[in-house]
C-alpha cells in the first residue's frame, strides 16, 4: 500500500500542470520566502563545487 502511495505521489509530482502551478505559487510569494526555503526547492542542472 505504501508503495502505491509513493507511486501516486511520484506521478502527481511529474504531472506538468501540477509542477508548473506549484512553481508559480512559489514564485508568487518568493519575496516573503527565506533563501533557505527557496534553496530547498533548487537543484542546479550542472552540479558545481566551489
Amino acid at each position: 500500500m505504501l508503495g502505491a502511495e509513493n507511486e501516486t505521489a511520484a506521478m502527481r509530482v511529474c504531472d506538468p500542470e501540477t509542477v508548473w502551478r506549484e512553481f508559480v505559487e512559489m514564485m508568487t510569494s518568493i519575496e516573503e520566502t527565506s533563501s533557505d526555503e527557496v534553496m530547498d526547492k533548487v537543484k542546479p542542472l550542472l552540479p558545481l563545487s566551489k
Partner: peptide, 15 residues
C-alpha cells in the same frame, strides 16, 4: 526555458 528535476517524489527547480 524552465527545467525542473523530480527526485524523491518532489520537484526541484534546476535551470
Amino acid at each position: 526555458t524552465f527545467t525542473f528535476e523530480v527526485d524523491g517524489g518532489r520537484w526541484f527547480f534546476s535551470h
